[in-house]
Design a protein around this nucleic acid. Structure first.
Length: 594
RNA sequence: CGGGCUGUGGCGAAGCCUGGUAUCGCGCUUGCUUGGGGUGCAAGAGGUCCCGAGUUCAAAUCUCGGCAGCCCGACCA
């Protein structure tokens, strides 16, 4: 097949006052010659919609748990996503690089993360026995480059980024491409002289991320987030609501407050009954066989809010007693942050017996002297509550924080749906989401640990401040599918669909239809539309089903109306068709996406 | 790492309990047919029944041990 030279050259497209090379060359795409292995049935291993459709539509194939091959369609879609990311990153002054995925242990040891990352870091040895790892993120390498090359404040600020494969040895890969061991990430890193500079870089990323996800056609929310093992002061996550997600976020529809549940705060509900007044003394009472909060509530006739929940945890090798209101849940993230040990664990039964002289179910804070006691702030100001007596089958009434026991008051509680928004008081909703982007103000953690210094205007050595920012490329595709699918397949946004329009002759054996379809197809290409010609010798039903399945946003059907000079333009999402003149077909699609 | 489920042509499944010819649908190949929503007919190709050991005259099937995948939990920048 001869190629029209006009189609085979890379297309340069202008974005604002800059231009980019389109990664996708426009060359003839004839379905009969393409590898698009669609399936009629859903492979048994796929449960979440995005996974099912990616397999059925011939986008991906699994190689192993959490390891996928991206076939032609997926790669095309992912390249378009990457191009959008690239354009928006360039637009804020980002400079694209490409760093090694294979890292020597030394840089990770310098930052301290060689030990912190544990089994999630893929580790290997080279032939000389030297330790290496496959990078799961690139703060270390970026900081190494900055340390080696940045000398002066005049070189700052810098925004460096890459789009690159990341490796994480997930304990449990799942949900198709949503949780995998090898994936693509756009990660960027900023270096600034001071906090104000970091704030600016952070804000630029915030805005760029919004533009990226909007251009990708996603419905998303930005939430305050916990910084986790990355370290740092401030962080936001970009989330897409989906049942396939694993993160929960609290959202206030009234004032717009939103935060990851790991971080969210809220006003707890009022206690179910008023506390007894007065400076009462703790008093033991018999609670035979009543171990749980619910059992004690039923036994005493008082609501769960009248009780204190005592949780015994081991952090940093030492026991910690965490106190919460009876109906509240411990936020493990908040607790871990408070005690500075992400690897804390629950105490074992024999430890509890040794430390408290009683079994779990009868534990309380009164008289406990040999360990740190943390109390959630919801207990502050409460009086005369019920807690375990540290004697099996006994509880205490009239226990008051600050009088009958001392504790450090802090935020330990995980927010629950229905709690009052801390800003406006409206009830919070809790939504399941997928994280597609995350931005961090890192502060000096890496620059300090790895010795990055530049001279300031006074000629003094100072440590630049850093930020890091990530986008999960495949997750954008997954979320688009999760958000936009129906019983027939994907309904991808035009910006990230592998093709924008498919031209389908109803009967490719009909010379008139074939010729008209070819012409319309050429006109689409000439207009810069990413078009696909379904020239297969298949029945129309098959072609329609496949086009719906792979999610092409528009379809031009050349069929029996051709006799009247008309073809059909059908929108995938609505299945709505309009008749357009043959000569106007390509322009009609262009008009829809303009 | 704990708990559960599943491994049978490319995909989806039956057969396993009660051992004895590997079965069905889809897909694939060829021919005819049909031609506006996965046409119809016919003839074909394609399988180490996840792997290994054991029991048995005989193992997809029973026993033991592995491996892999999925789901729940733990974990998760």
């Amino acid at each position: 097949m001869r190629e029209n030279p006009a189609w085979s050259a890379p297309i340069a497209i202008f974005i604002g006052d800059k231009f980019e090379f389109n990664m996708l060359e426009f060359r003839p795409m004839r379905w009969s010659r393409l590898f698009i292995p669609t399936l009629r049935e859903i492979p048994a291993e796929a449960e979440v919609p995005s996974h099912q459709w990616l397999l059925r539509a011939g986008y991906v194939r699994q190689l192993s748990a959490g390891i996928y091959s991206y076939l032609f369609l997926a790669q095309r879609s992912l390249l378009k996503i990457q191009q959008i990311v690239r354009q928006e990153m360039n637009a804020i002054g980002g400079q694209e690089m490409y760093l090694p995925a294979l890292n020597p242990a030394e840089v990770w040891q310098e930052s301290g993360r060689w030990d912190v990352m544990g089994d999630n870091l893929f580790r290997l040895k080279d032939r000389f026995g030297r330790d290496l790892c496959l990078a799961m993120t690139h703060e270390e390498v970026m900081t190494t480059i900055a340390r080696g090359e940045l000398r002066s404040y005049k070189q700052l600020p810098q925004i460096w980024y890459q789009i690159q494969t990341k490796f994480r040895d997930e304990p449990r890969p799942k949900s198709g491409l949503l949780r995998v061991r090898q994936f693509l990430m756009k990660d960027s890193y900023t270096f600034d002289m001071d906090q104000a500079g970091l704030d600016t870089a952070y804000d630029k990323h915030y805005q760029a991320y919004c533009r990226i996800f909007e251009r990708c056609g996603l419905q998303y929310t930005v939430v305050e987030a916990h910084s986790g093992a990355m370290g740092g002061s401030q962080s936001h996550e970009f989330m897409v609501a989906s049942d396939a997600g694993e993160d929960f976020v609290a959202i206030c529809k009234s004032c717009g407050y939103s935060a990851n549940l790991e971080k969210a705060t809220a006003v707890p509900s009022e206690p179910g009954s008023r506390d007894p007044e007065g400076d009462l003394t703790p008093e033991e009472f018999h609670t035979p066989g009543r171990k749980t909060i619910a059992e004690v509530a039923q036994f005493t006739g008082l609501p769960e809010t009248s009780q204190m929940k005592s949780l015994v945890l081991v952090a940093g090798g030492k026991p910690v007693l965490a106190m919460l209101r009876g109906d509240h849940q411990l936020s493990e993230t908040k607790f871990a942050a408070r005690v500075g040990d992400a690897a804390f664990r629950q105490a074992q039964a024999d430890e509890i017996r040794e430390w408290f002289g009683a079994e779990a179910g009868s534990l309380g804070p009164v008289g406990v002297a040999n360990m740190t006691i943390l109390a959630d702030q919801a207990l502050a100001g409460r009086r005369n509550m019920i807690a375990g007596a540290n004697r099996n089958d006994y509880h205490l009434r009239h226990v008051t924080l600050g009088e009958d026991f001392q504790a450090e008051i802090c935020d330990l509680r995980q927010v629950a749906a229905g709690d009052a928004c801390g800003q406006c008081g409206a009830p919070l909703e809790v939504v399941k989401t997928v994280e597609i982007g995350h931005i961090f103000k890192l502060g000096y953690k890496y620059s300090e640990a790895m010795g990055l210094r530049v001279l300031n205007a006074e000629g003094k050595e100072v440590t630049p401040i850093m930020g890091s920012y990530g986008i999960g490329i495949e997750r954008i595709l997954c979320c688009a599918i999760e958000l936009f699918h129906d019983k027939d397949g994907m309904m991808l946004p035009g910006a990230i669909a592998p093709f924008l329009v498919v031209v389908t002759p109803a009967n490719n054996g009909d010379p008139a239809q074939k010729e008209a379809a070819e012409r319309i197809y050429s006109e689409c290409l000439a207009l810069g539309l990413d078009a696909l010609l379904d020239d297969r010798d298949e029945r129309l039903g098959v072609k329609f089903k496949d086009a719906d399945l792979i999610g092409v946003p528009f379809r031009i059907t050349v069929g029996k109306k051709l006799a009247g000079g008309m073809v059909e333009l059908t929108e995938r999402r609505t299945k709505a068709s309009t008749d357009v003149a043959v000569a106007d077909a390509a322009r009609a699609v262009a008009a829809r996406v303009a």
